[in-house]
Computed example of a mutant assay.
Amino acid sequence: MSYELLVFDLDDTLFDFAETEKHALGNTFTSFGLPNGLAAYRDSYRAISSVIWDDLEQGRITLEELKVERFRQLFAQHELPIDASRFGELYIENLGRESHLIDGVEEMLSGLADYRLAILTNGFTRAQHARIAGSPLRDTFEAIIASEETGFKKPQPEIFDYAFKQLGITDPSRVLMIGDSLTSDIQGGMNAGIDTCWFNPHRHPNNTAVQPTFEIHSWAEFRVGRQAVNSN
């Protein structure tokens, strides 16, 4: 299949979210008078956040609720007298200041001049736009579409419908979705009826019914030809 539009996820696909989170969370704790907060509470936060993000994908919580709920639970667990709403707002602001690219991303994208490129992310609009604007990828994408602005999120097909409408796509067979999450990016692409490429740098086994069209383990492997994406 000859692709026209390549749609990329952002976090843990193009940007290193672990590094982003580390800096943003540490800086937010420091602003609230807890300079050791990252070391003390990061593990607890990540466990809580993982469940909350799964709740978002499954439609059990909204993105606006997620912004506060993950910190409300964290502070309740550790009996910290911190306003979760204020903390959540500053954390999103700090996220927007962090742009840490995964190895090979710039080189990979520089070879895609013949394709239309877009971002489709479940993240917060202002943070994601700010991170891209502060990175070497600032002029790379035709569109940056975040779930917050659409009212839908991956894996819902409606967010893909929204993106296709914004980008004037009438033939989904010419679209490829690339991302690291089986449950969000790959399932979402399948729900939208488009081909998918799973970015799996840690070589996680896939024992699910969610089967990507292609799988790669580094950006050096990503090759888009007139007929296919190759996994070497």
Rank of each mutant, 00 (worst) to 15 (best):
L6D: 11
S184V: 03
Q128A: 09
N191F: 07
F32A: 06
E69I: 09
A192G: 06
A76K: 08
S135H: 07
L63E: 11
L56R: 04
V224N: 08
D9V: 05
A84D: 07
L80R: 02
L167S: 03
M177C: 00
D9E: 03
R72M: 10
L74D: 06
F71R: 03
E21F: 05
I144S: 06
S49N: 15
G123N: 13
R126S: 15
E148T: 06
K22T: 13
P212D: 12
P81E: 05
G33D: 02
N94Q: 15
V51W: 02
S49H: 11
P205E: 04
S99C: 04
I48R: 06
A118G: 00
R223D: 08
E106V: 15
T13Y: 00
S49I: 03
I119R: 01
G179H: 05
V224H: 13
A47G: 04
W198M: 08
T20R: 03
A146F: 12
S49W: 04
G189D: 05
Y3L: 14
I194P: 00
R72I: 10
D195G: 13
A228M: 06
I48K: 04
L101A: 07
K154Y: 12
G134T: 03
L66T: 05
F17R: 06
A228E: 09
S110Q: 13
A118N: 04
I159R: 03
T208H: 07
T20A: 08
Y3T: 09
I102K: 00
W219A: 07
T30N: 04
F29C: 11
S50H: 15
L38P: 00
N36Y: 07
P155I: 08
T30P: 01
M190I: 15
T20Q: 05
I82S: 13
F141Q: 03
L38N: 02
M177D: 00
A133S: 12
A133R: 05
R226N: 07
I102L: 13
F32Y: 14
W53K: 00
L6M: 11
L101M: 11
Q187S: 14
L80H: 05
R138N: 04
R46P: 02
E158H: 13
N36A: 10
V229Y: 08
Q187M: 15
S231E: 11
P212Y: 15
F214M: 03
D103N: 02
H23K: 13
G179P: 00
S181I: 07
T196H: 00
P136V: 14
H202W: 01
D114N: 12
G104M: 08
A24D: 01
F152V: 10
W219R: 02
A133G: 14
W198R: 01
T30I: 03
A220P: 00
N206I: 10
P157G: 13
D195I: 07
A127R: 02
T150G: 10
F160Y: 12
H217W: 01
N207R: 15
Q156F: 09
K165P: 01
K22Q: 08
G37F: 10
P212W: 14
G134N: 05
F29R: 11
L117H: 02
R126V: 10
R223I: 13
H78N: 12
N122F: 05
I159K: 07
L10S: 07
H78V: 03
I92M: 13
I92V: 15
V105M: 01
F8R: 08
V51P: 02
G37T: 11
M177K: 01
L176A: 14
H202N: 05
R97I: 08
E221Q: 07
